[in-house]
Simulated assay, not measured.
Amino acid sequence: MRTFALLLLLPLLAFALPARAQNPIHRCVDAHGNPLFTDQPCTSQQAMPVQAPPPTPAASVAAPGVPVPLQGCATTATELRQRVIDAFAARDPNQLAGLMLWHGYGHVSAVDDIRALAGLVRQPLLEIHLGADTADDPAMPGSTGTPAAAPASADELQLRTGGVGDERSARFAVARQAGCLWLRYGG
């Protein structure tokens, strides 16, 4: 009887061994920012390893003060505008950089633009205009009703930041790609 039970377990053992011998899947990002999934180490593919985020329960709520990751891209102008406002409210240049379309940037220009974004979000957001809208923005405290340098074009986001004597303006081109609205920094 014991031999018969062992003979029944032998096929199960044969299926379990190959599954255990498989290589793990390595999550990587290549030099162009494209995701790469391979059974080889990332360094052998000239790529950087990426750790998978820990699973989070769907019903979890972020604690106050903890940044919440973006849950997709902005698909409407209103959503894009709100995300820019949220990035300024959080004083988070990475949140603003997450709205950017980085394709075609070199390392040096990307680092320079991220530094510029960091300086930009340190100041209070006074006005924001998306498209040809240059009217007062009732959602923005301290809005004077005067547009920054000039009215924004239909495919442009324009910001005015700063305080007394230290006002700045910045323009972002708005690009539509893959059903999303993205920003391209224009300074």
Rank of each mutant, 00 (worst) to 15 (best):
T144P: 02
M140F: 07
C180N: 12
G186V: 00
S143I: 00
S109N: 13
G163F: 02
A178L: 06
P124S: 09
A110C: 01
G165D: 15
A116D: 09
G162S: 11
R171M: 04
H107D: 14
M140Q: 15
R184P: 00
A110T: 00
L181S: 04
L117Q: 04
A150K: 04
M140R: 14
D112E: 07
L117M: 13
G163E: 15
V164A: 10
F172C: 04
T146K: 11
R171T: 11
S169P: 00
L159P: 02
S143K: 04
G186Q: 11
A110H: 02
V164E: 15
R122H: 08
P124I: 02
L120W: 09
T134M: 11
A175W: 07
L125Q: 02
L126H: 07
M140A: 14
L157C: 04
L125Y: 09
H129V: 01
T146G: 08
I128Y: 10
V121P: 04
P147L: 05
V174T: 13
A178E: 15
E167Y: 04
C180W: 09
Y185G: 01
E156V: 05
V164Q: 13
A135N: 14
V111D: 14
R168A: 09
Q158E: 15
G162C: 10
Q123R: 05
R184Y: 01
D136Y: 02
A116H: 03
A110G: 03
D112F: 01
R171K: 12
D133N: 11
T146Y: 12
A154I: 10
E156P: 00
C180D: 15
E167W: 05
I128E: 10
A152V: 06
G186M: 03
P138I: 06
R160T: 03
G162T: 07
G163P: 02
Q123Y: 03
P147N: 09
E167T: 05
G163T: 13
A173C: 07
D113V: 01
G165V: 01
A135K: 12
T144G: 14
Q158L: 14
R168F: 14
G163K: 09
T144M: 08
S109D: 15
T134I: 08
L183D: 12
L126W: 02
Y185I: 01
L126V: 12
E167K: 05
E156I: 03
T161Y: 06
R122S: 06
D112R: 05
D166T: 03
Q177A: 14
D166I: 01
V174M: 15
A139T: 14
D133Q: 07
Q177R: 15
G162M: 12
A173V: 06
G145N: 10
S153A: 07
A118I: 00
D137G: 04
G165L: 08
D155W: 01
Q177W: 13
P147A: 11
I114P: 00
S109A: 08
C180P: 10
A170S: 13
T161D: 09
R160W: 04
A110M: 09
Q123T: 00
L117F: 02
T161A: 07
W182D: 10
L130T: 12
P141A: 11
